[in-house]
């Protein structure tokens, strides 16, 4: 009986004690958690020692792990790497295009500089402002020989402004938008240039240079320019043809071409000089627009 009673009492005491212990333990833990929450500082030498021991190990594991992960990233995230690859290839193509464009601009700048130094010097041109332009398009039809330049009225370009290249005359502006200008080449049948032929004697012979380009005749052997003279005019093969400055469009002394061939007319009264242009129109990339209309 005593034993039972002692046992029962002892058990009751123990259960109560355990309950009280657990209660205070929980309370203590909650208080401890409150006191050592985020942003609270408290002396933690044991934690400091563990951190000091762990940090070199952590550093090694993390750096090795990062390296392995980096080296095997293509395996773990194949889709992502593939997408990145596509994006990078697109960027490379874009940058290559930009690089080529910049190189072209540098080359164009160098050619402008060469043009400025002048294959020819015309004092008549010096009094006009000039603007460099790049050919951005050629007439897609077979009806006209025109070029489109990347300069327009915003750059001070106007209709009838002459266009020149490093070796000579190219044509004149026939239409202008804010950012572009269309140039009719002197080789086109619609364009005429008041010109003169300066022979070896130095005396000029005046005339009109006419483009021979018409639909379907571009590839004929007669050349792209021709000029009519009287039979008595002294014009020889190899003579230089220059603008005369009389037409009101082109300034004087801009080279047009060289006489390639001279033929007598059937009537015997006139002769035709076939002129080879100095400018290679097919490979032309940059030109100067001479602002004769609004840019003196």
């Amino acid at each position: 009986m005593w034993k039972l009673g002692e046992s029962t009492v002892g058990r009751r005491v123990n259960l109560t004690g355990i309950a009280v212990l657990v209660f205070f333990l929980l309370l203590g833990i909650l208080v401890s958690m409150r006191l050592t929450g985020l942003g609270r500082t408290f002396p933690n030498p044991v934690g400091g020692v563990i951190q000091r021991l762990a940090s070199p190990v952590e550093n090694v594991i993390l750096s090795v792990g990062n390296r392995i992960k980096r080296d095997t990233r293509a395996l773990w995230s194949f889709d992502q790497v593939e997408k990145e690859n596509v994006a990078l290839r697109r960027d490379v193509n874009k940058l290559t295009g930009e690089n080529l464009s910049l190189k072209e601009q540098i080359l164009a700048g160098m050619r402008y500089a060469a043009l400025d130094q002048g294959e020819f010097r015309s004092p008549a041109l010096d009094k006009y402002a000039k603007v460099g332009a790049t050919i951005i398009d050629r007439n897609p039809t077979a009806w006209y020989q025109t070029l489109t330049l990347n300069r327009g009225s915003a750059d001070g370009v106007a209709v009838n402004d002459p266009v020149i290249a490093n070796l000579g005359l190219v044509g004149k502006v026939v239409s202008v938008t804010a950012k572009t200008a269309e140039v009719l080449l002197i080789t086109d049948g619609q364009g005429q240039v008041s010109a003169l032929v300066r022979g070896s004697s130095g005396n000029p012979t005046f005339g009109i240079v006419q483009g021979t380009y018409k639909a379907g005749s571009r590839l004929t052997s007669t050349g792209h320019l021709e000029m009519l003279f009287r039979r008595a005019d002294k014009v020889n093969v190899g003579d230089l043809v220059l603008t005369s400055g009389l037409g009101g469009v082109y300034p004087v002394d801009i080279p047009v071409g060289k006489v390639q061939e001279v033929q007598l007319d059937k009537t015997g009264l006139l002769k035709t000089a076939y002129i080879d242009p100095l400018v290679n129109f097919d490979s032309l990339e940059e030109v100067y627009i001479v602002k004769t209309v609004g840019g003196k």
């Binding site: 833990i29 401890s32 958690m33 006191l35 050592t36 985020l38 609270r40 044991v46 934690g47």
Partner: peptide, 11 residues
């Protein structure tokens, strides 16, 4: 040990 290692919310 984990509480002290983490350094907060001890308990």
């Amino acid at each position: 040990v984990e509480d002290l290692y983490l350094g907060h919310f001890v308990g």
